[in-house]
């Protein structure tokens, strides 16, 4: 019988809590979590109570506060993930490899949310959930690319092989981001052009403030999720290594028992 094993905690990030169980929480993440929660409540108030319907978009502008923020956070995380992948392949860094995974996973979640929320907005505005528009189609393709990346991450492999394999997929997916972003300019598109993050934003006043607030809130929420996901990924890696060592030790003991 092998004894249950406890993975070693990485420095300062995954510490045992009061009951002795390993936790992915720390003072920093608790602050981030609390900020996210308060921010979401304030955002709901601004989106539904304080902010007025738009002259053109009507009530559907409230969906934009989520849609624009989630896709912006997703793009930032995807670019960060590509950077981490390059660093992981270059320096053989396990930290960067796990950071690439964590950021990409949260980015995929946010991009999926963007597509769903966008489809609901499309139904309200265009009368259909989906139209074969360049921006919509390229975003769906980008989402599938990151699903593929996560599938490659899930293949059983050592750290180095996993890092290189998934890094290649990650870089190819990241190369698609400029295409998605510029698709509204390159092709005739139903999708709106840049609304907020330009020198001359097309919204103003409380709507603009609510959108900016939403971006900050979703950025904090994304960071909070990434930190937790990173710590879970680190623990998974540690556990698999400790599990392998324990299995080897158990086989050795069995072999000694047979010989003696």
């Amino acid at each position: 019988m092998t004894q249950p094993v406890t993975p070693a905690a990485p420095e300062g990030s995954v510490a045992p809590d009061r009951s002795g169980a390993l936790s992915t929480s720390s003072r920093g993440t608790r602050v981030l979590g609390a900020l996210s929660l308060v921010g979401l409540v304030v955002l709901v108030l601004f989106s539904f109570a304080f902010s007025k319907p738009d002259a053109e978009l009507g009530e559907s502008i409230r969906i934009m506060y989520v849609h624009v923020s989630t896709v912006t956070a997703a793009y930032c995380l995807m670019l960060a993930s590509a950077g981490f992948s390059i660093f992981a392949m270059w320096k053989r860094s396990q930290f960067a490899d796990l950071a690439a995974h964590s950021t990409a996973e949260v980015a995929t979640l946010l991009l999926g949310l963007t597509v769903v929320v966008g489809a609901i907005w499309g139904r309200m505005t265009w009368g259909v959930f989906w139209t074969w528009d360049a921006r919509l189609t390229s975003t769906a393709i980008l989402f599938l690319m990151y699903v593929g990346y996560l599938a490659v991450r899930s293949l059983p492999a050592g750290f180095r092989a996993r890092s290189v394999r998934s890094g290649v997929v990650n870089l190819l997916a990241a190369a698609m981001i400029p295409v998605v972003r510029e698709s509204v300019n390159w092709w005739a598109s139903l999708h709106q052009n840049e609304t907020a993050l330009t020198l001359d934003p097309s919204i103003s006043g409380l709507q603009y403030f609510t959108l900016m607030l939403s971006m900050v809130v979703f950025a904090v929420l994304a960071v909070w999720m990434v930190v937790h996901r990173f710590r879970v990924a680190w623990l998974e890696d540690q556990l698999s290594e400790v599990g392998l060592d324990a299995a080897i030790e158990a086989r050795r003991k069995e072999a000694v028992g047979v010989v003696s």
Binding site: T137, I141, V147, G148, A151, V179
Partner: peptide, 10 residues
């Protein structure tokens, strides 16, 4: 196919 087809969409 999951990896190749989306990449080849362009």
């Amino acid at each position: 196919p999951l990896l190749m087809l989306p990449v080849l969409a362009p």
